[in-house]
């Protein structure tokens, strides 16, 4: 299982016709962007290197720390065939979205 993933990772994803196969939440103020859902069988799932609760720090070296939700989604939808995600596992920060 993904218990042995390092907390901080750089993950390279190749876009499929359905995108990268994960959902994001956050981007309100500088709370950050988090992976909230990973589609089974999608690119992110198949990579085995991303997990729900990961905070996305950058995409293709575009800083995601203070980005808005809108801009984050736009970058991820238009970043071309591959996305290099710099992520850090922050489940305890992510969990507040689940409790809203």
């Amino acid at each position: 299982d993904q218990g042995d993933l390092p907390l901080e990772r750089r993950v390279l994803l190749r876009r499929s016709p359905n995108g990268f196969g994960f959902n994001i939440v956050g981007g309100d103020g500088d709370e950050g962007i988090y992976i909230s859902f990973i589609q089974t069988g999608g690119v992110a799932d198949k990579s085995g290197e991303l997990r729900k609760g990961d905070r996305i720090l950058s995409v293709n070296n575009i800083d995601f720390r203070g980005v808005t939700h809108e801009d984050a989604a736009t970058v991820l939808k238009n970043c071309g065939d591959t996305a290099e995600l710099h992520v850090i596992y922050k489940y305890d920060d992510f969990i507040r979205f689940e409790n809203r």
Binding site: G19, F22, N23, V25, G27, F37, H69, R100
Partner: peptide, 11 residues
């Protein structure tokens, strides 16, 4: 009431 909605986007 939590007025702060949170948006979720599929990418």
């Amino acid at each position: 009431l939590q007025t702060k909605n949170y948006r979720q986007s599929a990418v």
